[in-house]
């Protein structure tokens, strides 16, 4: 069987097996092995609070600060490190707007989400303006084929993109989200927030605040990159 790698356009050669002969193969690799190895997974040793690479088992400074600010830790888990290759991928997927590239990580992410089967999956939303220019939510793109609920929306006054702000500005930003349905009750429910990149954690904690305020019991989070 032959198809082309979404990232480098090289042909991917896979051995034919009985599924191909019967014509019932449902999954084709979207990227070649060469490209896939350029992405680094985070590994086993991580900060329990935010999922970043860690050399000991204590909480990282950022998470200690979240905790001392009275936050319930998100126990965030990320799949990959935000290295040059991942940066390049995000550039092409989000900012060049190549929606087809969602396929690169879709199945990996879906596999990972199986660990959270009891959770309601809530993607981080994008603004209306982004819907009219980019035309897709990069998070829900990755979630195709998985049950999720869009509970959040971006409040109207939000103008600047997260990625255009520096760390200081991000940290002092006000609550960027609101609940789509103001009357929703999440009493006793577990929620899993999903985003493409976790940088400061600010976005995730704002979203978590909102969900806790309507009764959520536990909020955890997952992102593609960290």
């Amino acid at each position: 069987m032959m198809n082309k790698c979404l990232l480098c356009q090289e042909s991917i050669l896979t051995k034919s097996d009985v599924l191909d002969i019967l014509g019932i193969r449902t999954t084709q690799p979207a990227v070649c092995a060469q490209c896939l190895t350029q992405f680094e997974t985070i590994g086993e040793r991580i900060c329990f609070g935010c999922g970043r690479l860690s050399h000991d088992d204590t909480l990282c400074q950022d998470c200690q600060r979240w905790q001392s600010n009275g936050k319930q830790l998100l126990e965030h888990r990320a799949l990959y490190r935000y290295n040059a290759t991942m940066k390049d991928y995000m550039q092409r997927y989000k900012f060049s707007g190549d929606y087809a590239l969602r396929e690169v990580f879709r199945s990996v992410l879906l596999q990972h989400l199986k660990n959270y089967s009891d959770y309601i999956k809530v993607p981080i939303p994008i603004s209306d303006q982004t819907w009219l220019t980019r035309g897709f939510n990069q998070v829900t793109g990755l979630l195709e084929g998985c049950q999720y609920q869009e509970l959040l929306s971006v409040r109207a006054h939000q103008k600047a993109h997260q990625s255009q702000l520096n760390r200081q500005k991000r940290m002092t930003r006000k609550q960027p989200f609101e609940l789509i349905d103001g009357t929703i009750n999440l009493q006793g429910k577990s929620i899993l927030l999903i985003d493409d990149i976790y940088t400061t954690g600010n976005t995730m904690y704002y979203a978590a605040d909102l969900l806790y305020s309507v009764g959520a019991q536990a909020v955890r989070s997952v992102s593609l990159a960290r």
């Binding site: 060049s96 707007g97 190549d98 819907w131 035309g135 939510n137 829900t140 793109g141």
Partner: peptide, 18 residues
Amino acid sequence: ERLPRQQFYCRQCLALGR
């Protein structure tokens, strides 16, 4: 290539901006 909400884009000349 399709986008959500019945929108679409051209993947052929993507390298020059979508």
